[in-house]
């Protein structure tokens, strides 16, 4: 399969500028990374509604809380490693607990940050955010979906965490693919096994499905963009109809999308399952594809997991 590779950040910047034109209540905060997160596009279009907080993420989140409490729809951006762990208490106390209208759109998540190494490769942000009451967690699959997600969440009044990457990602949707929060997108039908991916791993699930087809295995592929609130209906239906599930994510297997799916299935419809993701270790410097390979996020890893699940099916 050949993919068109496009930037999620660029679409984030574009969507923000459009929102800024449409609505005067949109304000944007960044912590000295606006040219990387692309909030700089909004900053040039609407300088009076953009506040650079400097390298002070804790302060940025609480400032956002004050703006949101005053009726603003606040987008806050920085790298995912700084926009979650570094200001966790602020997100907990001043965003999630008071359920304020703040959208944390964090870029440079996961190991595909590449050369910066483990200090910058957050692989636990989904875990941190999904355990917070009132917090929704979305991982847009590609550039089109990033744009659609930003436009969609701006219509809600509640806290949302959106995780995007640094690198360009394969475009698996088209501009008209609908995005509805908490409504998983079945990208390919299948009856033998279900591959559930989020973010950059969805394209790999699609490729793995092609590979499995060669072995006579008919795999369903789901883009589970919203990790919380989870589309339990689509997940359980897939488990019921295919009898086995593989999840794949660029995140620690400890408490990411895969474990959300596992928890859902354990309680609702128990089927053989395998999680593809980063094992319980920190990353390191390297090229994206080298890291994906070393940490087990390849098409082959997914195919192998699917075979394993197939074997365990009754």
């Amino acid at each position: 399969m050949t993919w068109k590779w496009e930037s999620q950040r660029k679409q984030y910047g574009r969507a923000l500028v459009e929102l800024g034109k449409e609505r005067s209540d949109i304000v944007v905060l960044d912590a000295d990374l606006s040219s990387s997160t692309r909030t700089a596009d909004f900053a040039s279009a609407f300088p009076e509604r953009f506040f650079n907080c400097g390298i002070a993420e804790q302060n940025m989140i609480d400032t956002a809380a004050g703006l949101a409490a005053s009726g603003k729809t606040v987008f806050v951006s920085t790298f995912a490693v700084f926009g979650t762990g570094r200001c966790y208490d602020q997100i907990r106390q001043s965003v999630a607990y008071p359920k304020l209208n703040i959208k944390i759109v964090a870029s440079h998540a996961g190991i595909t940050v590449g050369g910066d190494g483990a200090s910058h490769q957050i692989i636990e942000d989904i875990a941190l955010m999904r355990v917070l009451p009132n917090m929704a967690v979305i991982v847009p699959v590609d550039s089109n979906e990033t744009y659609n997600v930003v436009k969609a969440i701006a219509k809600t009044k509640d806290p949302v965490y959106v995780r995007i990457g640094r690198a360009d990602v394969p475009t698996v949707t088209d501009k008209d693919t609908p995005f509805e929060m908490s409504k998983a997108n079945v990208m390919r039908d299948g009856t033998d096994v279900t591959l559930i991916g989020c973010g950059i791993l969805v394209s790999k699930c699609l490729e793995a499905a092609e590979e499995l087809a060669k072995h006579g295995i008919d795999a369903r592929v789901i883009n589970l963009h919203t990790i919380k609130p989870l589309d339990e209906k689509t997940v359980v239906k897939a488990a019921r109809e295919t009898g086995g599930v593989v999840t794949a994510e660029e995140h620690s297997v400890m408490m990411g999308m895969g474990s959300a799916v596992a928890m859902c299935l354990v309680e609702n419809f128990h089927v053989p399952m395998k999680r593809v993701g980063i094992p319980d270790v920190f990353g390191e410097s390297g090229a994206c594809n080298e890291l994906m390979e070393k940490y087990g996020l390849t098409i082959e890893n997914i195919v192998e997991a699917a075979h394993d699940v197939m074997k365990r099916k009754k």
Partner: peptide, 8 residues
């Protein structure tokens, strides 16, 4: 910081 947000 929250007060600052309100002031902004």
């Amino acid at each position: 910081a929250a007060g600052n947000g309100m002031a902004l």
